[in-house]
Amino acid sequence: MRTWKRNLLAVPILLWIGLLVGIPMLLVVALSFLSRDHLGNIVYQFTLDNWRKVVDPIYLRVFWNSLLMALLTALITLLVGYPVAYITSNLSPRRRALSLGLIMLPFWISSLLRTYGWMILLGNAGVINNVLMALGLIERPLPMMYKFGTSLVGTAYMLLPFMIVAVFNSVDKLDRSLLEASYDLGASRWKTFFHITIPLTLPGIVGGFTLVFIPALGLYFVSDLLGGGNTVFLGNLIHTLATRGRNRPLAAAFSLGMVALALMVLAFYWKVTKDKTGEGLFQ
């Protein structure tokens, strides 16, 4: 009786999600099994061709590129973001607010503009090359644009705040007396960091990893602008197929492939945060 009433309260949100997420998702699934004519119009004829292409070894390379990009992005943001989050949480309340404000500040500027900013910085006639040449350190511009690494830097930069905020929430909750207890028991700062700080902030690390990994799979405009299309990622492929390629059914199939990748990461996240160590942390 009571659970029945409580479930009733969830109806509006379920309707909302069903309408705006569930139905479009089903449409994408349906689309991935349809054909198209030579102009790109959808033909309502069942086919498995799209899915055959998704598992084709040639396209698996694209999945691999995206997976590598997302993994490396998550790793880089973690290595950069963890110290930032840790230092921020140890600041005085005023400085902490300032620091968090600065971390959030880039969100006020269009991400597209910020990506162009990187082009100005890294281009052959860009700021960095100009400065280095003016100083006489190099004779010819260093080619920094249109590489895998360029996309990686741009994506990591774009998603860094998500990692910082996720880790910050965890680090901020960390009971500092536990660190003192660890020093007191004879552990050095490094040992304390590895044995106490890291395990106790694991939820933040895994949460940040998920928050960065999933968008990194699909941030196509960064690799378009900074990578110049030299490495094909899932996002770019789907974007090209759906627009210039006029092949929406195939784009739908690849989209679902990307969803599958994201679900794998989510499954990992659920597993880590629900296991024995997680229980103690989330009590």
């Binding site: 536990l178 660890s182 020093y183 007191d184 004879g186 009590q283």
Partner: peptide, 28 residues
């Protein structure tokens, strides 16, 4: 540094490590 002093503290809130069991806490 505290880890170099031959004294140990029992903290007011006990400060047991929540991710370690009793054995690992004591063996720390």
């Amino acid at each position: 540094a505290p880890n170099k002093r031959n004294v140990n503290t029992v903290f007011q809130n006990y400060a047991l490590f929540p991710h370690l069991n009793v054995y690992d806490n004591i063996a720390y």
